[in-house]
């Protein structure tokens, strides 16, 4: 096969009852970001720097209740107010150098795209994420596991998804 494999993006759609600018600001202003991006109230969140514009980057630290620190570097590829944001986020060290992924063969870079649009009911957010320049193996793994329902495959995957979903 000579074709470069492409991974289909995973998509999450949400409707927010807030003006488009408010949603965009929540994504692009560090003061807002920490308020909703940490896993819960027990986790602290601090931005060391936040240069959130096209070509810029940001580094923030989250500290878990058990003292475990997690550093995240975000590179912003496109910041176009008020409706488009593209970024890649990496787990990093305190110097903001990306760590290698914890699972072998996993796409080291996942690109996220936030698309906002105004509707009569509020602001529609489409969030798309996909691996960057994946190998054939990474595409296969991505397609096989995406969305928890083996979403990239065409047919007959209800059984598969039942099988893979742990019994509740």
């Amino acid at each position: 096969m000579t074709d470069t494999p492409q991974a289909t993006p995973a998509v999450i759609t949400r409707l927010y009852k807030a003006p488009i600018q408010a949603v965009f600001d929540a994504w692009t202003d560090a003061r807002h970001l920490c308020q909703w991006q940490r896993p819960n109230d027990q986790v602290t969140c601090d931005y060391l720097f936040a240069d959130i514009r096209t070509g810029g980057s940001a580094l923030h630290k989250m500290v878990m209740p058990n003292g475990h620190e997690m550093w995240l570097l975000t590179r912003y590829l496109d910041v176009s107010a008020p409706n488009r944001l593209v970024f890649i986020q990496y787990e990093s060290n305190p110097q903001g150098e990306p760590l290698s992924p914890s699972m072998p063969n996993w796409p080291p870079e996942i690109q996220a795209t936030v698309l906002l649009s105004e509707t009569a009911e509020g602001t529609m957010m489409e969030f798309r994420w996909q691996p960057v320049n994946p190998t054939a193996e990474q595409v296969a793994a991505w397609e096989a596991s995406k969305g928890g329902a083996i979403g990239g495959w065409d047919t007959g995957f209800v059984q598969l998804s039942d099988y893979l979903t742990p019994a509740r």
Binding site: A10, I12, R14, Y16, K17, A18, A22, V23, A26, H32, Q35, W36, Q37, P39, I110, M125, F127, W129, G147, G148
Partner: peptide, 16 residues
């Protein structure tokens, strides 16, 4: 990864 995003988006809703 997906549930992490979903959780964040719930929180974004609450925050807005």
């Amino acid at each position: 990864l997906e549930s992490r995003w979903q959780n964040q988006f719930d929180q974004l809703d609450a925050y807005l």
